[in-house]
């Protein structure tokens, strides 16, 4: 399964990167979301998948899945929520002020 997930990660990163390079601010925001999805899966995959039961000691199993990447990814999910919200609101404010979400039009003046 690790190979399959690795390919999925690749797809997520490809699409995320492609959207980052697009002109619409909203697509850029979605691109960052895909990148964080990919990063979360990457962290889990590198540790190996489906080794043993869920990391709950009340759950009687011979082995448990690695809890550390899970804890890391859990914080990462919450943080990426915060970051995505911030970027989204930034995009929203940018549109409100400049009346456009096209990054080609948002580039500064030449002298900057």
């Amino acid at each position: 399964m690790e190979i399959l997930i690795s390919i999925i990660i690749g797809v997520l990163f490809t699409v995320g990167t492609y959207m980052l390079l697009m002109r619409s601010l909203l697509r850029v925001v979605i691109g960052t979301m895909f990148l964080s999805h990919g990063a979360h899966l990457l962290l889990l995959t590198m540790a190996g998948l489906q080794r043993g039961g869920p990391p709950l000691l009340g759950f009687d199993a011979e082995a448990y899945a690695d809890p550390l990447p899970q804890a890391m990814v859990l914080t990462a999910i919450v943080i990426s929520f915060g970051v995505t919200s911030l970027i989204l609101v930034l995009a929203y404010r940018t549109y409100k002020v400049h009346k456009t979400d096209d990054l080609n039009q948002l580039r500064g003046s030449k002298d900057e």
Binding site: P54, L56, L57, G58, L74, T75, V78
Partner: peptide, 11 residues
């Protein structure tokens, strides 16, 4: 002791 906690509860 079970799935849950501050993050999940809060969300």
């Amino acid at each position: 002791n079970n799935p849950g906690g501050g993050f999940i509860g809060g969300l």
